[in-house]
Design a protein around this nucleic acid. Structure first.
Lengths: 184, 184
DNA sequence: CTAATCGATGCAATTTTTTGCACTAATAGC
DNA sequence: GCTATTAGTGCAAAAAATTGCATCGATTAG
């Protein structure tokens, strides 16, 4: 959707190669914007064609050469302009909710298992986010403007995680009554 | 992703035509699973070919004929089996978060505007959800099993909405300090 | 030395989603 | 009666995302 902008944003601070970007997308930026290396490579080429990125080949000792991309002036301007354009949201599609619509005595146990599992995953992620917050964003008020924004994106992830945990608790409580009363 | 299952789930209680489904997708099911009528029509044809749905043409007085689809036994079984399969999640991609990464003195005002706007939208939606909850799911504990599941999907939307509102408040508070101190 | 392995890069086919249009039949305005 | 509009259905091209491979060097095992 706005993969182009996600990539350019990653390049704001440092020039990166395709694989470096792909790795970055598993960390920070990737917390809320997933992408695969294939997509990234393609998009990089497009952006270079457009003149928003410049590419320079870096010879590496021992390893194959890597192509490092950096924002051009035009790229920076395009990115800055983009902020004022329309904002798309692609809402989550979670098959778990769909499964809930199909809840039955036959599958409650299974669904409970899935919820429990997801709860665990989200909790792990939440620990990570909290650790980052504590480490880098202890006092948001005193951060430079741009970092305030980055902090808020992180905060969004934290809020969502917490919300999910509390939903899980409600769900598990309610579903426990089903298995409990229906016996077996 | 699992559009097929989303459609079949909508057909659990009643047979529907393409346009009726499309309208449904703007309501209940569509609260957490968006789709367009084009996609729905295509998927309906595929599912009918697979033998999971049957199609019957209904002549309507005055209007063009409509094709009404219903679940076949095979369809019901496939749907029931699907619940036990792997669960995919397609996490939200929200350009607003990307914009936050690009926060600057030049665009804070604009971003604040966008957040405020979204806050309003989410609040509206939340009112709707709450109304549905109050009307149909007053006492979740006493609902039949399947409706408990449906209720939990709704509850998920409510939790998410509330989470978003509280995030908005944090964000607006923090960003107010930026515009406040930078003056002008 | 040769073959198997690995990490980084990338092409290409397939599938999914989006976008734009087109047809049909009723309805409304003139 | 003729044209414009609207609701329901659907095709098809384009764009985006996913999946599966393919290459290219260096590295390790035999």
């Amino acid at each position: 959707m706005a993969l182009a902008q996600a990539i350019m944003t990653s390049l704001l601070d440092a020039d990166l190669s395709g694989s470096e970007l792909a790795r970055d997308f598993e960390k920070s930026m990737g917390f809320f914007w997933q992408s695969t290396h294939q997509q990234i490579y393609q998009e990089l080429r497009k952006l270079a064609d457009k003149g928003w990125l410049n590419k320079r080949e870096v010879n590496q000792s021992g390893k194959p050469n890597k192509n490092v991309y950096g924002l051009t002036l035009a790229g920076r301007e395009a990115l800055a302009d983009w902020v004022f354009g329309p904002t798309k949201v692609q809402p989550t599609k979670d098959e778990l909710l769909l499964k809930l619509y199909n809840l039955s005595d036959d599958n409650v146990e299974h669904v409970i298992g899935e919820i429990t599992h997801r709860r665990e995953e989200v909790m792990q992620r939440l620990y990570l986010y909290e650790a980052i917050r504590r480490r880098h964003y202890d006092d948001p008020g005193s951060l430079p403007v741009r970092h305030k924004g980055v902090y808020l994106a992180l905060a969004s992830g934290i809020h969502q995680g917490e919300q999910f945990l509390s939903w899980c608790d409600e769900a598990l409580t309610l579903l426990a009554t089903v298995t409990g009363s229906s016996g077996h």
